[in-house]
Every structure is written in structure tokens, then in C-alpha cells.
Design a protein around this nucleic acid. Structure first.
Lengths: 141, 141
DNA sequence: CTACATCCTCTAGCGACTAGAGGAGCAAGA
DNA sequence: TCTTGCTCCTCTAGTCGCTAGAGGATGTAG
């Protein structure tokens, strides 16, 4: 007899919220666990591990589809890991792109905020800049 | 008589897509324009300007509610601009936070990808790292 | 006159959850 | 034994900011 792990306990251990766990089950990301006599979900330790894997992957920004693929790979340890590598590299490129674009936004917002003279809206640099894109620091966007 | 600006033309000039313009009208972000005899939307130049303002604001990541407030401010030039300043500063803080967290992700992903020996899944650092959060470079997340 | 582009309204879908209704089960204390 | 209160169940609908598609009307160029 192995330990009884309720959905609440699984949530605590994995860091995934209770409704989110049920949602993952619903979309087929997590297999439906056994139920107790009272119809409650009863998880095994390896299912909680799987949840932790999912959570970490989500934190790193992987989409549900990518995670499905990664989970299949995890279940097939003798496969070459090229696919996993590819998914991670795609994600890395994506993150780098986001950082670049957020840095551009940051610069723009900083300029807006710095040049605001805290007077009336009609002289406000914030509103002014939003209205006239061509006066941006960088026209990259 | 001023120029006739169709929704398609407004889209071209503002850089906002046609269905998105209709959506903005529906949610009350953009006032409903006049119609031609054939029931087509007919925009004025200042409405197209407003669209450009909205677009730029969205590009900078402001939410619809924030943009509504900013538009009200733009329409009231004698108000103090403290609110606009506040909204922009909030957004700046948000962007800075995102950049920080994306940089952490980037580091983690880089480590995963670099340490992958391109062998089998069972020795793959990518899968390994996802499964065991505690082996992360930074436990910040 | 005939294509074809553009426009109209309406509904539904996306991703990844989150919130809430309405009810059942279960453990612990009085 | 009863009651309190927590956790659990299912189900539906909402979030944000669009985007896609159906099915039809109108406008324009050759």
C-alpha cells in the first residue's frame, strides 16, 4: 500500500494549484489518477513528480504542447534527445527576442517618465510620446 | 467636407488591423464613427490619430483599461499629468520585473542547452533539469 | 456586366488558466 | 452524536486581447 496523496497535498508538493491540476487532467496533460471510495483523486508519487516537471516547464515559459512532447520524451529515455534540445533552443531564442524588445520598451518608458515635467497634460511628455510614435527614442517597434 | 476614411484606410494609416478596430469600437475604446449611406464606417482624421495613440500604447504594453485612462487625459489637457506619469511608472516597473525574470530564464535555458550532450534522453540535461527544479542554476523561480 | 475587393454583422475560438455556484464527504472537537 | 469547517467534487462562465470564419451586402475597375 502506498501513501494516499489528495489533490490538495499534490498541489502543496508540486506548487501547482488545485484547479490547475484538474485543468491539466482535463486537457490530457496529466493522466487521470485513481479515485478513493469517496470519488476523490488519489495521486501516486510519480504523478506528483510529473506535476513538478510540468510546473517547472511552465515557469520556463514552455507551452502546453511543448510540455506534452517533453513528457513523452521523459517516458522514453532511450530516444535521442535531439527533440528536447530543439524545443529548449527554440524557447531560448524566443526569450532572447523578448528581452530585446522589452529593453527597447524600457528605454522608451524611461525617457517618457524622465521628461515628464509633472505639470499639465497638455505639456506632458508621456501623453505626447504616445500620440506621436515618430518622436520615439527608437523606431524599432 | 472632410476626407472619407474607410476602415481599411484607417487600418493602413494607424497600423491597427481592421477586425481589431471593430473590436476596439465594440469594447468602447474607440467611439463609433459616422456611417456612409451604405452603412460603412467613415473615420475622421482625429479618430485615426486616436487609433495610432492606442496602437503605440499597446506596443508599449499598456492594458486596455490604462489606455482608456490615458485617452481621457489626452482629452483634458488642463488636468495635472500625475495620473499619466503614474501609469507609465507602473508599466516601467512591470517591464523591469519582466526583464529580470526573463534574464533568469535565459540563463537557465542556456545552461540546459549547453550541457546537453546530444545523446539519449536518459542522460539529457534538458529533461533532467525540468524534472528536478532543485538542480537549477538559480532557485529564484 | 462581371469580377473581385472591401465592407457588414455575428458567433466562436485561442492559451492557460481562474472564479464561482452548488453540493458531498470527512476529520476533529464539544 | 452532532456540528463545525475544511477539502473535495462537477460544471459553467469569465479573463485578456484579439483572430478566424460564416454568410451576406456594397463598391469599384475593366
Amino acid at each position: 500500500m502506498s501513501e494516499q496523496i489528495s489533490i490538495g497535498e499534490a498541489a502543496r508538493r508540486s506548487g501547482v494549484k488545485v484547479p490547475t491540476i484538474r485543468y491539466y487532467e482535463q486537457i490530457g496533460l496529466l493522466p487521470a489518477p485513481e479515485r478513493t471510495e469517496g470519488n476523490r483523486r488519489n495521486y501516486r508519487a510519480d504523478e506528483v513528480q510529473r506535476l513538478a516537471f510540468i510546473r517547472h516547464s511552465r515557469e520556463l515559459g514552455f507551452g502546453i504542447d511543448a510540455i506534452k512532447t517533453l513528457l513523452v520524451l521523459q517516458d522514453n529515455p532511450n530516444q535521442p534527445c535531439a527533440t528536447a534540445d530543439h524545443i529548449a533552443k527554440d524557447r531560448l531564442r524566443d526569450v532572447e527576442q523578448r528581452i530585446r524588445s522589452l529593453n527597447a520598451l524600457k528605454l522608451e518608458l524611461e525617457t517618457m517618465v524622465e521628461e515628464c515635467s509633472h505639470g499639465r497634460v497638455k505639456e506632458c511628455r508621456v501623453i505626447e510620446t504616445l500620440a506621436h510614435h515618430d518622436r520615439c527614442v527608437h523606431q524599432t517597434h
